[in-house]
C-alpha cells in the first residue's frame, strides 16, 4: 500500500527546502537563472509583487501555460500562488502537478472570510502569517508550511522583522506560562488549544517556517536566518534589481552562511543597485498586502 498526500509527505517537502532560498519568477528564463543560482524552489507568478503594487488591478493565479513552461525548464520544485479562498485555482494547480501552492495575500483575495480547506488536497500548501495566531489558524486549515508575511513588493525588511519577532515572541511567552494560562492565551490569539500546547512543547512552530516580504539583500536574508527562520522567500528583490543573477547567487550563499560575517561581506560586494524599495510609513492602510487573510 502506498499513500499519497499524507501530512508527513506534505510537511516533508518543506523540510527538504530548509536552509534554502525560494525565488519568485515570472518566466522560464528567470526560473533557469534562479535554479543556476542555487534556489531550492521557484514560485511561479504572473507579476512580481512590486509590479502588482505598481500596476494595481486584480492579481490572480498565473497563466497555466506560463507555469507549465516554468515546470519544464527546471528540475527543482515549482510552487505557484492562488488567491486566498480560491479553491478552484488550487484544484487547477494540483491537477497540473505543481509541487506546492502558496495561498497568498499578494494576490487579490477571492474570499474575505475563509481560507481554502487545505486538508482536501494532495498537494501541500504554504500560507502567510504575521503572528502566531495567524500561523496556527493556517495550520488548522491544513497548511504544511508557514512563511511570515512581511510586506511583499516593498523591498523593505522592516515588516518581515516585525512578523518574525511577533511569532517567536509569542512562542517565548507561551513557554513561560502555566498550563492553566494556555486556554486564555489560545483564545486571545484565536488558535486551537491543541496547537498552542504543541507549540509550547516544541518551542517553535510544528512545521517549517520561512521568512518573506521585503528581502532585498544578502544581509536581509542572513538577518531572517539569524532570527530563526528556516529559509527565505525572495520575491521582487531579485528580478527588480539591476543585476539579478549575481544577486540571486549571493542571497543563496548568505542564507547558507548566515552566521559568518566574513562570507556575508564577500558575497555582498559589488552587486549593483538593489530594488529601490518603499518606506512602509508612506503606504496607506488599504495598500498593505499583509492585512489580507488574517
Amino acid at each position: 500500500m502506498e499513500e499519497t498526500g499524507t501530512p508527513r509527505v506534505k510537511k516533508g517537502l518543506a523540510q527538504m527546502l530548509k536552509g534554502g532560498v525560494i525565488m519568485d519568477v515570472t518566466t522560464a528564463d528567470q526560473a533557469v537563472i534562479a535554479e543556476e543560482a542555487g534556489a531550492v524552489a521557484v514560485m511561479a507568478l504572473e507579476r512580481v509583487p512590486a509590479d502588482i503594487r505598481a500596476e494595481g488591478g486584480v492579481a490572480r493565479m498565473a497563466d497555466p501555460l506560463k507555469i507549465e513552461e516554468i515546470m519544464d525548464a527546471v528540475t527543482i520544485p515549482v510552487m505557484a500562488k492562488v488567491r486566498i479562498g480560491h479553491f478552484v485555482e488550487a484544484q487547477i494547480l494540483q491537477g497540473m502537478g505543481v509541487d506546492y501552492i502558496d495561498e497568498s495575500e499578494v494576490l487579490t483575495p477571492a474570499d474575505e472570510f475563509n481560507h481554502i480547506d487545505k486538508w482536501k488536497f494532495t498537494v501541500p500548501f504554504v500560507c502567510g502569517a504575521r503572528d502566531l495566531g495567524e500561523a496556527l489558524r493556517r495550520i488548522a486549515e491544513g497548511a504544511a508550511m508557514i512563511r511570515t508575511k512581511g510586506e511583499a513588493g516593498s523591498g523593505n525588511i522592516v515588516e518581515a522583522v516585525r512578523h518574525v519577532r511577533s511569532v517567536t515572541g509569542m512562542i517565548k511567552r507561551l513557554h513561560g506560562m502555566d498550563e492553566d494560562e494556555l486556554y486564555t492565551a489560545a483564545k486571545e490569539i484565536g488558535a486551537s488549544i491543541d496547537l498552542v500546547r504543541e507549540v509550547r512543547k516544541l518551542g517553535r512552530l510544528p512545521l517549517v517556517n520561512f521568512a518573506a516580504g521585503g528581502i532585498a539583500t544578502p544581509a536581509d536574508a542572513a538577518l531572517m536566518m539569524q532570527m530563526g527562520s528556516d529559509g527565505v522567500f525572495v520575491g521582487s528583490g531579485i528580478f527588480k534589481s539591476t543585476d539579478p543573477a549575481p544577486r540571486a547567487k549571493s542571497i543563496v550563499l548568505a542564507t547558507t552562511h548566515f552566521d559568518d560575517p566574513k562570507t556575508l561581506a564577500e558575497v555582498s560586494k559589488g552587486l549593483g543597485e538593489p530594488m529601490k524599495g518603499i518606506d512602509i510609513k508612506t503606504l496607506k492602510e488599504e495598500e498593505l498586502l499583509q492585512t489580507r487573510g488574517v
Binding site: E3, T4, M16, P77, G97
Partner: peptide, 27 residues
C-alpha cells in the same frame, strides 16, 4: 516517481529485520 503530488508513504522491507520500516518517499 513524479512530482510532489505523487510523493508517498509505504512500508519497506529491510534485509536484516522482519519488522516493516515506514518509508517516506518525497519526489
Amino acid at each position: 516517481y513524479g512530482r510532489q503530488t505523487e510523493s508517498f508513504e509505504a512500508d519497506v522491507k529491510l534485509a536484516w529485520d522482519a519488522r516493516p520500516f515506514p518509508g517516506v518517499f518525497i519526489r
